[in-house]
Amino acid sequence: MNSGSTAPLLSVSGLSHYYGAITGCCGVSFDLWPGEVIGVVGESGSGKTTLLNCISGRMAPTVGKVEFCTRTEGLADIYRMSEAERRMLMRTDWGFVHQNPRDGLRMGVSAGANIGERLMAVGARHYGEIRDTANDWLGKVEFNLDRMDHLPSTFSGGMQQRLQIARNLVTGPRLVFMDEPTGGLDVSVQARLLDLLRELVTDLGLSAIVVTHDLAVARLITQRLMVMRQGEVVETGLTDQVLDDPQHPYSQLLVSSILQV
């Protein structure tokens, strides 16, 4: 990291978003440091996705600032930079893993092309090299390499999700947004995926923001946790701390709702 650990990678301050009279999220501030994984938990409708969309450059917040530490200029407000710069950031330095892989993948083209797309978008024009890189990444996400030329629609849910992750990581992003990355997968596949995610995050020194309603996911891959309710962050802290000793009544409710097997 060129700027070292002195500057946060992402800095969010006073962020609120309203849909007319309805509050999406309200007064959210936090810093994300390089190599850190933050989890956002809360029930349905608590504003998690609104928050994620606002900080990932997909929806301008009503008020507040989202600053990202760019490679060249240091901290810069992503909604004040030109759209061209922001879109460039979104397809190089950032990744976005959708809950439903169909939203994040191009279903009509092969797995290899899905991974190659981001490379071609930033100017790669050598077929052989694109293919080699795609191959490498499929290996890293434990994909059966024989299936590189198959369409994503022929893959299982877990494979689609791993493909989506590979597709996002191929340009070497520094920040990855994940919206319920394990939603809709059965538990054994979830466990493998989480294991993979944890490995990748550690190996690549990625920072990530993971939105989930699954506290087990939060426990496994995040270091810090924000608990949201009705658009507001009601509690933040180290993940183990929040989960083992919740302070806010809602956090207590959330933690006590986990089914013990």
Binding site: R87, S110, G112, A113, M120, A121, V122, R125, D149
Partner: peptide, 22 residues
């Protein structure tokens, strides 16, 4: 229109990639 405005044409090569692959 936005893609034309920002000259974001990388995705067009995806189609050619698929052709070569198939």
């Amino acid at each position: 229109r936005k893609m034309h405005g920002l000259a974001e044409y990388g995705g067009m090569h995806v189609r050619l990639y698929e052709d070569i692959t198939r």
